[in-house]
Design a protein around this nucleic acid. Structure first.
Lengths: 192, 192
DNA sequence: ACCTGAACACCGTTCAAGT
DNA sequence: ACCTGAACACCGTTCAAGT
């Protein structure tokens, strides 16, 4: 049947988009490829490896679509590309949360973030915590965004008792940029 | 055998601490309680409900150990209690990430955060995004902290190529406060 | 080199039946 | 009211055996 790592990962992402992470089983993936489950283990180590490879493929696609400007602008743009990719692949956030960065493209994205943070003045000793905050902000934001969009009426009721009647809603795009600006403003205290 | 919701949740947390989330199955939980798996379904709706109840119990324990000071101090203290509780219960972060806030004590904690944020000057329209950032910061920080502590040598190798040889490590306690200060500094731009 | 059959050791959940 | 037996429809992974 001619299977390869690339074909496996591509089909895995297709299943993700069609049915979500909980339907992505080794048997289902093999079935979609016209093969039996044990065949996959010739090409990948195990399911964790599959998840890692999905995150790697997504990371590689983020890398190519990011230009180089000044550091602050780069971080801003990368955050947008990151979010876009996480929204594009169903359960993309869960994939990233369940995969520790070890593959090349994924590491490259983190490296770019760290270098950019140093460029905007973040001291070396605060570099790790800042890049963690940046990465986790994007992941968490999209996680919440996806949950809300799947069930807009599902927000805990008490929230409406806190927010006044004149509460003005802001779009997800605005909220996302808003949070980024909070982070960048906060990072200034890491510059000395 | 006299089972109840409280006993079930307490034993579930005990299993979490002994063996971790992936070993917490309905069969294992029932077995530890001297009962068969289907018996659990008389007391809880399903496994999701169990996870929600664990998060609720943990949230209730956070509530009692938090005093009332000024808003900024409260947020700082609550962040510490939150982190401590997440570190105390094995896989506590995963429990929270896999449970949407709907139970009373859990909602109460979020409500307290939102009200405190309003008190320190965050405008109502930015209240949701700010409380999301606060909550996600604590969860993500502890998630990374736990991973690192479980495997201190497992950091991606490229990181050492970025950080100079004079890189000074800072403790997790310091890193945590550092990130909190970044957030509070950043939140100032949400005050007008 | 690459794939299958068969098996192992599990899951969450339902539901008729017991007490 | 509360629990069990038995079953359904799944999992990830291994490994001897096939081609």
């Amino acid at each position: 049947m001619e299977i390869s790592l690339e074909v496996i990962v591509r089909e895995a992402i297709a299943i993700l988009n069609r049915e979500g992470l909980e339907k992505l089983s080794m048997r289902a993936l093999a079935g979609a490829l016209g093969v039996k489950a044990p065949a996959l283990y010739w090409h990948i180590k195990n399911k964790q490896d599959l998840i890692d490879q999905i995150a790697e493929t997504m990371s590689a696609e983020m890398l190519t679509s990011c230009g180089l400007g000044n550091a602050q602008k780069y971080l801003f743009e990368f955050a947008h590309v990151y979010r876009q990719k996480l929204l594009e692949v169903r359960d993309g956030v869960a994939v990233f949360l369940n995969s520790y960065p070890s593959t090349p493209a994924r590491c490259e994205t983190i490296k770019n973030v760290m270098i950019s943070l140093l460029h905007i003045g973040v001291k070396e000793k605060y570099c790790l915590i800042a890049s963690g905050m940046f990465n986790n902000y994007v992941l968490s934001f999209v996680a919440d965004e996806v949950i809300f969009k799947a069930n807009p009426a599902g927000m805990p009721a008490f929230i409406n008792t806190i927010l006044g009647t004149d509460y003005e809603k802001i779009s997800f795009d605005e909220q996302f940029d808003c949070g980024l600006n909070v982070l960048f403003a906060g990072f200034k205290i890491l510059a000395q």
